[in-house]
Design a protein around this nucleic acid. Sequence first.
DNA 1: GTAAAATTCAGGGAATACCCTGAGTTTTTT
DNA 2: AAAAAACTCAGGGTATTCCCTGAATTTTAC
Lengths: 212, 212
Amino acid sequence: MKTTKLAITDDHKMVLQGIKTMLKNTLHIKVVATYENAEETLKNIAKDNPDVLLLDINLPDINGIDLCKQLLKKQPELKIIALTNFDDTSFAKRMLKNGAHGYLLKNTDKLEILEALKTVLSGDLYLHKSIQKKMLNHQNKKTNDNGLKPNLTRREHDVLVAISEELTTQQISDKLFISAKTVETHRMNLMSKLGAKNSVGIIKIAMEKELL
Amino acid sequence: MKTTKLAITDDHKMVLQGIKTMLKNTLHIKVVATYENAEETLKNIAKDNPDVLLLDINLPDINGIDLCKQLLKKQPELKIIALTNFDDTSFAKRMLKNGAHGYLLKNTDKLEILEALKTVLSGDLYLHKSIQKKMLNHQNKKTNDNGLKPNLTRREHDVLVAISEELTTQQISDKLFISAKTVETHRMNLMSKLGAKNSVGIIKIAMEKELL
DNA sequence: GTAAAATTCAGGGAATACCCTGAGTTTTTT
DNA sequence: AAAAAACTCAGGGTATTCCCTGAATTTTAC
């Protein structure tokens, strides 16, 4: 059995350190590189050439989903395991759709990491238990009440900001040079995406999720 | 110099492991306990009796701000350093207001941890640099209207809370057993007191001033 | 190059919020 | 006890939001 080369991308030094320590005395596994952001990862991944990358989803520069896609374009052989705080089905689905090979929560232990590595190296998908269960149960149920940031479109964000400035629909339409009807459409979509009942809810949720 | 007893509360095993490893070969510092949630922390803190607690703010059971308050009630001598992903001023302020002695971001390194420990043990506050800078800017720049909390009346507060729950005027009147017209009066007074143009502004300002 | 997502816009109607003036009642403060 | 503040409510009007359906155009993704 040849040694597996592992790389880790996470902007928290503590997590990097934690994983490295967990795997320090493990045979057949060697942490060959750690990165603190997406740019660094993209720049060095070819050179370091790991077999598996543990990839944090919440990075400062690019979101993990896009990064995942880009990385696989450069390194088709690379196995990517998403690493996240969030126990969320829809996010996991999106990651897997974009080519990730596994999904791990950060409150995992050494054993599970080893299990995940073994699984993805053999070509299978590895999902954390709780995610597996949810995927089976929830199938296609849309719950927007998780701790995730919904990804708003550019225009939705514009309207969101304008709403938070206490502007009326008409004022927003003047500001953005679009019709009032279009503003209403965006506001409706914001309510829907955020699970809000009205503009107050939009702002409340947006502030809680740090969307502003 | 006597040895400092350190405890850590974080629901991510990786972070726990990471900090422990960072401090492993450090003289005068010993990690005496690690907890994965608030309940565990409250239950064992007296027994373990650490000098300093590194406390993650995002816990599954109780939020870190409340936990901080409770812990200090039980252990007034304990120094608490908040640990978080978020580089957020208002959050830091609230933590410090509730008795925390320091504020560290998770992407920190060993040197800064040691610096923070030294600072809080000597009785001072330790703030991460980026937070310090932001706090200064906020105080000088954001004096948009004296950071004083407008004192709302009991009823105004009731209505404020109801508005933040995305209720309509009619629903609020049913909830508080007053007429819809009275609710409108209170809402008008809220707008006037907070300097808001509409309900969105009421909520935005109320959240910023922590009136909710 | 085709499918998917995003952006744009409209009509029309019901519901709600916003705003003004005015005023009686209760509670708190001095 | 008097004054001040808080709480209550109303009439009547205008402005705005909310909600639905439907659809063309542009941009982005695969």
